[in-house]
Amino acid sequence: MVKEIHLTNKYKAVVIGGSAGSFQPMVQILSSIPREFPLPIFLCLHRLKHVRHGFVEALSIKSQKDIIEPMDKESIKKGVVYLAPANYHMAVELGNSVSLNTEELINNSRPAIDITFESAAYVYRDKLIGILLSGANKDGAVGMQKIKYRKGLTIIQDIEESMINAMPLAAKNIVEIDYELKVDEIIAFLLKLNKIYQQ
């Protein structure tokens, strides 16, 4: 399937959202993309509110990428993976920085995927790739809608494969998703994208 996807090097960033059942896929993805993968990646994964430490470390173990929880207004660098910190929403600002805030919970979540996706869609427009993984609520669906509206590329984890499919399904129900891929295919997709940038 991935073979047929036509890709260009117009993309400027990737956002990935996930909740229950997304940790393993996330680790797999992060351990498979090479260090030189050039785009910044913004991760918004639902997480415990008061556990400030350990998540970055757990995601980093098998990955060659620099994975960080950004400070508010930290500048965005090529190839860095930004993880939304516990109890903060993470947004992309115009002017190439990441911002954090403590606005109300959205879909019962902080960080909320909708906020990261929507803000990234606003800034990167059609140059954004949004990926939504397994999860138990509907966070991310509206975010995917915004990405689509701005003509970015939308991908959900395969509904059958998702450990809990409520989240990708919620997105599928309101957006015409571009691709529904298994984790292995998502990885193949990102590797293919990487190749284009290395040419």
Binding site: K73, V92, E103, I115, E118
Partner: peptide, 9 residues
């Protein structure tokens, strides 16, 4: 004010 949250507010 930071644009992304101001806009959302």
């Amino acid at each position: 004010y930071a644009m992304s949250s101001f806009r959302r507010r």
